[in-house]
Simulated scan of single mutants.
Amino acid sequence: MSLHQRILGDIEDRILSGEWQPGFRIPFEVDLAEQYKCSRMTVNKALTQLAKTGLIERRRKSGSYVTQPRAQSAVLEIRDIKLEVQSLGLAYDYKLIAKARRRSNADDRARLGLEAAAPVLDITCTHFAGSRPFCVEQRLINLAAVPDAGEEDFEEMAPGPWLLNRVPWSAAEHTIRAVAANEPVAAALGLAVGTPCLTVERRTWSNGSYITHVRLIYPGERHALVANFTPSQPK
């Protein structure tokens, strides 16, 4: 391994592990050159490569800073959040916050399109990118449609990929909203109460029955939604 590759790898590891958070100023070239006993040209080569990959931003007369990764989700796709995080070059983690099995209330029935009271599983969890919260997931599962979900603890696997692996869905509906973080969401995402957030709500169903309703709540400044489409064809 060349010295510039070693420097490159060391800095990448510190960024991707979360040791150097977004906004952190990387040591100046002269300091890194002294640390690695090399020329500034070698350090500059490593930093230039990191800037090209988008991990750092180089600012004239100010130095180099760890960039804020911006996630992009396809609006009309159901994607595994773990893969979304890993596509940013960050380590993924997941934490279950709460799980409760209960009879549906009026709000649950509206979210799941239920006409009468039925058993539901109410799950709240946080997904992480590196050491930082990536999004909060608030999910309802219709246990009449997916009874096996009631036996899962969801400590190790998030409910999204669990459902995708076990229950074929035939249609989905997305709703996108701008919301202000309330106290539970702000605490889970490490934000101030009232911080603008982006919420993607999705219902999926199969054979005429709703399977699940989920709210995915992202810090607004760190997330973007992308939709691909083509011009409609004249009839």
Rank of each mutant, 00 (worst) to 15 (best):
R40F: 05
A149G: 04
E57M: 07
W20T: 01
S87A: 13
E156I: 07
P159N: 04
H223A: 10
P196K: 01
P69Q: 01
T204H: 08
S104R: 07
F128S: 06
K52S: 06
I217F: 09
I56E: 04
E29R: 00
V120D: 06
P133V: 00
D108G: 01
T53N: 09
L191N: 03
C135A: 11
S64C: 15
V214F: 10
L191G: 11
V30R: 14
R203M: 12
A186P: 10
F24I: 04
I141Q: 01
L216Q: 07
H174P: 05
L114I: 04
T48D: 09
E12R: 15
T53M: 10
L121E: 05
A98T: 08
L189D: 07
E183L: 13
A180P: 02
V75Q: 08
C197A: 11
G130K: 00
T67G: 06
L121F: 11
E151Q: 12
F134I: 02
L191F: 10
A46G: 09
S64G: 09
S170E: 15
A172V: 05
R70C: 11
A187L: 02
S62V: 04
S170G: 14
E155Y: 00
K61F: 08
A178G: 09
A110S: 11
H174L: 10
M157D: 12
L112P: 05
D31I: 05
R79A: 08
D13E: 15
R103L: 10
N182A: 09
G194C: 06
L216M: 06
I97W: 00
H4A: 14
G63C: 01
W20Q: 08
W20Y: 07
E173G: 09
R103Q: 12
F28D: 07
D93P: 13
Y65P: 15
Q86T: 05
I141M: 04
L112E: 03
E115H: 15
C38M: 13
L198S: 11
P234H: 02
A106M: 13
P133F: 00
A172R: 13
L114R: 13
Y218E: 08
R102M: 07
W169M: 06
A172F: 10
T212D: 09
S73M: 07
S62L: 09
D10A: 15
M41Y: 10
I56G: 04
G9R: 13
R14Q: 12
S64F: 04
G54I: 09
R109N: 07
V30L: 13
A74K: 12
E29W: 00
V226S: 10
Q21W: 14
L16G: 06
T42L: 08
P133S: 09
L164C: 02
G89Q: 11
C135F: 10
H174E: 12
L189C: 08
L50S: 05
R111K: 11
E19S: 15
I211L: 15
L191E: 14
R25Q: 13
H4G: 03
L216E: 13
K235S: 11
F128N: 04
R79H: 05
S73D: 14
F28W: 05
G89M: 14
L16K: 14
A71W: 02
Q233Y: 13
A178F: 03
R58M: 03
P234F: 08
E29P: 00
T124L: 05
G160F: 00
D108R: 01
F229T: 12
